[in-house]
């Protein structure tokens, strides 16, 4: 069982594993793996705590009601699965600033937190605008050969590459 304790697996083994997992979701659940809709549902659940039942009147939450569904459980499972993996390899550690960010921008926690928050807001908004994320479009949609997903996935990387290059090669240089 040494392979379970390995820190990293070959990306091809991991990718093929995700591919086979997708066969199972189509077969057993008639669904494709995705993540970002659950963030929209959770945002609705949180709004409901403050604003009450009228949240349901928002057009977007009528399309994606703030309830726990298959994909929401998938995201919960993702949290556990990644935790099992990191614990088995003994790599769990609390960390505010990732090494590459620290090397380029320093170890200031506030700067990294604020950047991550702003990036999170933009990616969350963009994911719902595009109707999916790197999982739902980038993996599940492209394997189904959906036109929307190929366009979205290519756009994710064009936007991401340009932004990361500007941040690391201009701002943090």
């Amino acid at each position: 069982m040494e392979w379970l304790a390995m820190e990293r697996w070959s990306p091809y083994v991991v990718g093929a594993g995700i591919g086979v997992l997708s066969w199972l979701t189509f077969l057993l659940s008639d669904k494709a793996i995705g993540v970002s809709t659950s963030f929209a549902r959770t945002a609705g659940m949180i709004e409901k705590l403050f604003a009450g039942a009228k949240v349901k009147d928002k057009a977007y939450y009528q399309k994606f009601p703030p309830v726990i569904d298959w994909e929401w459980m998938l995201v919960l499972g993702l949290l556990l699965g990644a935790y099992i993996s990191v614990v088995l390899s003994g790599q769990f550690r609390l960390e505010w600033v990732p090494p590459m960010w620290a090397a380029a921008a320093g170890t200031n926690i506030f700067a990294r937190w604020l950047t991550a928050l702003v990036g999170g807001i933009i990616i969350g908004f963009g994911a719902r605008w595009a109707g999916g994320c790197t999982s739902g479009h980038g993996i599940s949609g492209t394997m189904q050969l959906a036109v929307s997903s190929w366009l979205a996935a290519i756009s994710f990387f064009i936007g991401g590459i340009i932004t990361a290059k500007i941040i690391f090669n201009v701002f943090l240089k």
Partner: peptide, 29 residues
């Protein structure tokens, strides 16, 4: 179950996603 899309949704939304992707350094999953 291919997702529906449009240039305005997939490309513009996708590029916005990409900007956030590059700033955050993680994606929603």
């Amino acid at each position: 179950h291919p997702k529906s899309g449009s240039f305005g949704s997939s490309v513009i939304g996708g590029l916005i996603f990409g900007v956030g992707f590059g700033i955050l350094g993680y994606c929603p999953g």
